[in-house]
Amino acid sequence: MDWKEISGNWVLIPRHPIGIVHFLGGAFVATAPQLTYRWLLEQVAEQNYAVVATPFVNTLDHTAIAKSVLQSFEQAIAQLQATSVLRKRYLPIYGLGHSMGCKLHLLIGSLFSVERAGNILISYNNYAAADAIPLVQQFNPAFAVEFTPSPLETQALIQERYNVRRNLIIKFTNDTIDQSAGLIQVLQQRFPEMVTAKTLNGTHTTPLGQDVKWQTGASFTPFDAFGQWFKQEVYRDLNQLRRTIVLWLNPFAVL
């Protein structure tokens, strides 16, 4: 499988897709998700899910971003249905978000009429603009800025209007900016028994991990042994994340 650019999205299409995953990344790494999240997304595609990763540039207006990425995704799906193996087939659509990408999927599920089989929300955070971009107020403390919707408005929207019933929420043990706990409580109240929460080893940047091709020399040296140990330790958390996502999507997946 090779990445292709379709209607502003980066897309991976397996030969026999069984579902579609719409991916949205974190605020400062979302402009090139096919690079920053390459390993994780390719692992999802290897399980026969078509991956549509929508880039975006962060602004204060998160509602506008949510609308824009949804429109871009729908344009890509329409083109794929007209020209590829997705033609004339119903496939379940799942949202997959990391960090700010979680907020965007939550806004999409609250503000727009979409059909989703479920959402996977990794390292959710819903900070105020002053906390997320403190340099703005350092330059001009009197200039008040806030995201649209604000954190409180976002929480109210989710509580009242979020319509995606099945959700997997993943947080990491060493993630100091994660705000999943409050989200878990809200969603479990809204959709009892439809929300799965997992705490995995890792940090906020674990989903960004990439595979390193460690090439041993003609003879196996202590340096090679250290390299293989390092790779095993680094990718243990990433592989646990992959397994958690894949098994939630398909409990019968062969890993």
Rank of each mutant, 00 (worst) to 15 (best):
K4T: 06
I6K: 02
V11W: 00
P17T: 01
I18K: 15
G19Q: 06
I20W: 01
I20H: 02
I20S: 00
F23R: 02
F23Y: 04
G25F: 07
F28R: 10
V29H: 03
V29G: 01
Y37S: 05
V44C: 05
V44K: 02
A45Q: 05
T54G: 05
F56S: 05
T59Y: 12
D61E: 15
K67T: 10
S68T: 11
L70A: 05
Q71T: 10
F73Q: 02
Q75S: 08
Q79A: 00
L80F: 00
Q81H: 01
A82L: 07
S84A: 01
L86F: 06
R89P: 04
R89H: 08
R89M: 09
L91H: 03
I93A: 03
K103A: 10
L104G: 06
G109L: 10
L111R: 14
R116G: 02
A117H: 10
G118Y: 04
G118L: 09
N119D: 15
N119A: 07
L121V: 03
I122F: 03
Y124P: 07
N126T: 05
N140S: 13
A144H: 15
S150E: 09
P151Y: 04
L152I: 13
Q155I: 14
Q159T: 15
Q159G: 11
K171Q: 14
K171F: 01
F172N: 01
T176K: 12
D178T: 10
G182F: 06
G182S: 13
L187S: 01
L187V: 06
R190D: 03
E193S: 14
E193I: 06
V195Q: 05
N201Y: 07
G202M: 08
T203D: 12
T205Q: 14
P207F: 11
F223M: 12
D224R: 08
Q232H: 11
E233D: 09
R236G: 02
R243S: 08
T244Y: 00
L247D: 02
W248A: 05
N250G: 05
P251D: 03
F252V: 07
V254Y: 07
V254C: 10
